[in-house]
Amino acid sequence: MDTSKLSAALAPYQLRSCLISSEARLVFEHYRETGTAGELAKINSCTKSILSALVCIAMQKGLLPQPETLLAEFYPRLRQDRDPRKAAITLEHLLTMSAGFNWTEFGGRNSFPRMTRSENWIDFVLEQPLSHNPGEHMEYNSGVSQLLAALLAEGTGLPVARFAESELFGPLGFEQYEWEQDPQGIHTGGFGLRLRPVHLLRFGQLYLQRGQWESRQLIAPELVDRSTQTAILAEAPRRGGYAWHWWTDSYTHSGDAAAKTELQYYYARGYGGQFIYVLPKQETVVVLTQDHRGKQKRAADVFRESVLPILTAT
């Protein structure tokens, strides 16, 4: 990889940070300001992928049931709901954002902002009407992430952050973090976590290594694989697919003999330009963070427009 060419390509974006590891070795590290490396910053919806990891760990430990389990096992009220389809929602439907709730994430009556202004976020989500049958359509929904966080706390008997410290943050060496909570004290499942850029890189590396960190298998390889495979196509205008709180996509580029090669990858995505990209075949992890400074408004395209062409150059 031509690092000088990459630095030049990234310069117009005014990124807060960009870290790239290849074959478990840090090969590129950029911070806009010298203090950024040690600062905690919001990762927004990248929190969802951290939550996915914690759910996988809880499942493998038998603290949460299998993904096919009905949500009504935890919330029996769903069996008495006016809409009988709610009784068919499973944990996997929550993980793939396909529970069917009529939800407009950033506006309207059924939305993330209205949830955060309610007295009980879990009740707010469960009371929302369905617009689709469970499993047939993806609708981005931080409310279902909060349901998963609540189930995780109930299943483990620990606050979500405490479980994370024991099973994920501690082993990965996350010395500091901050995590918001809802009015009932449940840590936010869809946002609200603050980490350092290097923490995001380690988390991505854990997934690249199929759940193994140093001598410990933190997440079972089969759960890493299942949780990062496309389960449902993303809703427009987003591209690619969705897995268990991970996005999936592909990139076509020319090989050595001008043959087209499709590169598969998956990634965590947070509002405002926070990303963790995992490229298994390339043994590469890319972290991008941004904070709205400058006039660059196309953070979601930085990876495909400026990073991937250089990573795949021959």
Rank of each mutant, 00 (worst) to 15 (best):
G189E: 06
F191C: 12
F191D: 10
F191I: 15
G192V: 04
G192P: 07
G192K: 12
L193D: 07
R194F: 13
V198L: 09
V198D: 09
H199M: 08
H199T: 10
R202K: 09
R202F: 05
F203H: 02
G204D: 04
L206K: 01
L206G: 03
L208M: 15
L208E: 01
R210N: 14
R210P: 09
R210D: 10
R210C: 13
R210H: 13
G211R: 00
E214P: 06
E214N: 11
E214H: 15
S215P: 08
R216F: 14
A220S: 10
P221K: 00
D225V: 15
D225G: 06
D225N: 06
R226C: 07
R226Y: 05
S227G: 04
S227Y: 05
Q229C: 09
A231L: 06
A231R: 03
I232Y: 07
I232K: 01
L233V: 06
L233M: 08
A234G: 08
P237W: 12
P237F: 14
R238E: 13
R238G: 08
R238I: 10
R239E: 15
R239A: 12
R239D: 05
G240T: 00
A243L: 02
W244G: 01
W244R: 08
H245E: 10
H245F: 05
H245K: 07
H245Q: 05
W247H: 02
T248D: 08
D249Q: 05
D249T: 02
S250M: 07
Y251H: 04
T252K: 13
H253F: 15
H253E: 01
H253Y: 13
A258F: 09
A259V: 12
A259K: 11
A259R: 03
T261E: 15
T261I: 11
T261Q: 12
E262P: 10
Q264L: 11
Q264D: 12
Y267M: 06
A268N: 02
A268E: 02
A268P: 03
R269E: 04
G270C: 05
G270R: 08
Y271W: 12
Y271T: 05
Y271N: 03
G272F: 03
G273S: 11
G273V: 10
G273R: 02
Q274E: 08
Q274M: 07
F275R: 08
F275M: 06
F275I: 05
I276M: 09
V278L: 06
L279E: 01
P280R: 09
K281H: 14
Q282E: 14
T284L: 02
T284H: 08
V285M: 03
V285N: 00
V285P: 12
V285K: 04
V286L: 03
L288T: 06
L288F: 04
T289M: 15
Q290Y: 11
D291Y: 01
D291V: 01
H292V: 03
H292N: 09
H292F: 14
R293Y: 15
Q296P: 03
R298D: 05
R298F: 14
R298E: 10
